[in-house]
Simulated assay, not measured.
Amino acid sequence: MSAFDIAISETIWDGKLPLQVTFHPTESISSARTPDPIYIEVARLSYLSLLTHQLHSIYTGLGIQTQPENVWYDYNGEPLKWHFPIGLLYDLYNFPISQVPTFGEKASLPWRINIHFDEFPIDKILRNPTLDTTQDMFMSMLKEADFLRHGTTKRVMNMSKRDQTQLWQSLVQGKYSEYWSVNKHLLENGQLARHIPLRLYMPYKCPPIQELVPGNTEEHPLLIGDAMTRILPDLFPSDDQEECDAIPVIHGVPLPLDTPLGWASDNLCFADNFLHIVISKKGTDNGLDT
C-alpha cells in the first residue's frame, strides 16, 4: 500500500451526512400521535440498519415499538437498499450535476428520507435488514474484494473471529484506528493487485455494473478514465473529461479521469474495500435518464 495516504483515508472515514427521518403518512403506529421528524448525523460509510439501531431507543422512548427486520426507508417513494452504504445511496439519488467547478452547489441537506414499519417491499429490496444480516453482507463484500485483488479469499477466510468482530464493530462505532489495524492485512500483499474491486452505479434503477478491471502493470499505471472507457465507452469515449457525457462520483466528490486507479483503490474505497462509483450524466439534476 505504498500509495496509501492516511490523511485522505481519515477524511473519508469521518465523512458525515445529516438526515431528516420522517414517518411516512401511511404508517400506523402505537404512539398517540405521529412524532416529529428526527434529525440525526450518520457516517457516509455506515448502513441503514445501523441507523435503525440508533433510532430504536428514541422511538422506544416515544412508545413506538420497532422490529428491525421490518423497518425500511424510502426516498421520494423509492425503497432504499439497506445493504448499500448510506453515502453511496445519497450520491445515487441526490447528487446534482453541473460543470465540475460548481459540482454539488445544489445539494439539498439534510437528506429527507421516510421510515416505514409496515408493507415491506420484498419485490424491491432484500428482506431482513438487521445488524446481523448487514454484517453478513459486509463480510461477503470483503471476501469478493479480497478475491478480486489477490485471486483468493484466504485473507478474509483466515481472519480470527476476534478480528472479524473488531473489523465490524469498529465500523459500527466509528473507530478508524481499530478498523485499519485489521483491514490493512487484507490489502497488503507486496505485489500489484490482480484486479481492482470496482462497482459502477447508474441512477436510478439499473443494477450495479461490475466487470474485471486489471490492476496496475509495471509499464502502464491505469487511470480512472481507462476503467470508465473500458466499461462505459458510450459515456466515456476517451480519458478527456471534456469529451465525456458523464462524471464519476465517489464520496460526494467528482473524480478526475486522470486519477490513478491504484491510488483510488488504496485511498477512496468504502469500508468493504470496494470502489463504489456513481456515474452521473452532465447537464441533469438527478443523474442519468431512466
Rank of each mutant, 00 (worst) to 15 (best):
Y59H: 03
A193T: 13
F103Q: 15
Q164I: 08
L192G: 13
W13D: 06
P129F: 02
S181Y: 15
V182W: 02
K81V: 13
I38K: 09
N158T: 08
N114W: 03
F4R: 03
Q65I: 06
M202I: 13
E105C: 15
I58R: 04
S177I: 06
I6Y: 13
T22V: 09
L192R: 06
Y47N: 06
E211F: 08
V71F: 04
W263Y: 14
A271V: 02
T229A: 11
P208N: 08
E178Y: 15
K143Q: 11
F117A: 04
A193D: 08
T102M: 10
V172S: 05
E219T: 10
I58W: 03
L55P: 00
P207N: 10
G215F: 02
G15T: 07
R149P: 01
M139S: 10
F120E: 03
P110Y: 00
S140E: 09
V249C: 07
G225E: 09
H83P: 01
S108K: 06
E144F: 12
L222H: 12
N158D: 06
L192A: 08
K205P: 08
Y93K: 06
K205Y: 14
P208F: 04
L51F: 04
Q210D: 10
H276G: 04
W13V: 04
S49N: 14
G87C: 02
D91T: 09
